[in-house]
């Protein structure tokens, strides 16, 4: 019953066992210290290498390390809270046979409250500072930075540019340094800085090269740039990560990172093989507006004022000009430009 009951006949049997504050503090702290001392090394030595998305690029490696740091910051918090709740449930419950009493009327504690706010603020600021450092350090950490990226790799002369085109429901890729051929295959050279220019022909897609740690939304008429430096050869998965209609779930394929010479061989031979097709493609541009060629489904009438202006300004093949901050080196890309970019181990 509540507080209005007459004072308990047995003042001793509940209260003393519950004791004062300090023994509880000491016990809780000891358990927490032990738990943290076990969990943190396990995370660092055993879990770290297995954290997705792996180490295929510097962006992936950065995300992996960041996830480790967050986990190592979060673990002591999780341990403390869980431990506290279990402890409270075990030690501070109404025991059978005890007279039903109320607990001590503790309304608050300035020190505890201030300490709590201080500690949580420090953790949060730590996570923010580290996350921002990682974001800048890996040139946007593989995320799409829009048409004018502000975090770019230091050297951009030797960069390979790949345009990623999302359309319902498949990805195609254009290689502007190789005559602008377009193919559904994504092949990349190792030890090379890559700039992905992601755009869409219709709705919003999201280019997710999982093992590369690259993700960028594909918006129509938008050039969304993401960077990554390749680090290992092998296969990676590309999935669409933004709901885009019926075949969204099937909109995936595989890409490969190969040696720079293999890549060069593939790229030059494909350029030659696809040259008749490349001729009928629109001239390479950073975005690509198919409505201008009449393939708009007739939703907006052909007399649509904006469409007319658009056609006048940009022609029918898409937007010319509007070059992003990271330019394509006009002379193409050679294997000799690769090989110097070994992603440093941490």
């Amino acid at each position: 019953m509540s507080h209005v009951e007459p004072p308990s006949e047995h003042p001793g049997d509940g209260r003393v066992a519950r004791g004062a504050n300090m023994p509880h503090f000491a016990r809780l702290f000891a358990i927490w210290l032990l738990g943290t001392a076990i969990v943190e090394p396990v995370l660092y030595f055993l879990v770290w290498p297995h954290i997705p998305p792996g180490t295929m690029t510097d962006a992936a490696r950065g995300a992996q390390f960041d996830a480790l740091v967050l986990t190592m910051m979060a673990s002591p918090v999780v341990i403390a809270v869980l431990e506290y709740f279990v402890y409270a449930m075990v030690v501070w419950h109404q025991k059978k046979g005890e007279p039903p009493e109320d607990g001590p009327p503790i309304w608050g504690h300035v020190g505890i409250q201030a300490g709590w706010i201080g500690i949580t603020s420090a953790i949060v600021m730590g996570a923010f500072v580290f996350g921002t450092y990682e974001l800048i350090n890996t040139a946007g950490s593989g995320g799409g930075e829009g048409p004018s990226p502000i975090w770019t790799p230091a050297e951009t002369n030797d960069m390979l540019t790949v345009q990623v085109i999302g359309q319902q429901w498949l990805w195609t890729y254009r290689y502007p340094q190789f005559g602008g051929f377009e193919t559904p295959e994504l092949i990349l050279p190792n030890h090379t800085k890559i700039a992905f220019h992601v755009t869409s022909l219709d709705v919003i897609h999201d280019f997710w090269a999982y093992q590369l740690g690259v993700k960028a939304d594909a918006n129509p008429n938008v050039d969304n740039v993401a960077f990554a430096t390749t680090n290992e050869t092998g296969r990676f998965t590309v999935r669409c990560d933004e709901l885009c209609g019926i075949w969204h779930g099937a909109m995936y394929n595989y890409g490969y990172i190969v040696s720079p010479t293999t890549f060069y061989k593939w790229a030059t031979s494909t350029e030659k093989k696809l040259s008749p097709l490349t001729k009928i493609l629109p001239k390479f541009a950073w975005t690509y507006n198919p409505s201008a060629n009449g393939a708009g489904g007739g939703y907006y009438p052909a007399s649509d004022a904006f469409y007319q202006v658009y056609k006048y300004e940009y022609g029918t093949s898409g937007k010319e000009g509007n070059l992003p901050a990271v330019h394509v080196k006009p002379s193409g890309w050679k294997p000799s430009q690769a090989g110097s970019h070994h992603v440093r181990e941490r």
Binding site: Q168, W169, V203, P290, A295, G296, G297, G298, Y299, Y300
Partner: peptide
């Protein structure tokens, strides 16, 4: 699937 936007009167012909 078909890759021609043949859904007349839908935006982009793709609905």
């Amino acid at each position: 699937q078909c890759f021609i936007p043949c859904g007349l009167s839908y935006l982009d012909g793709n609905g």
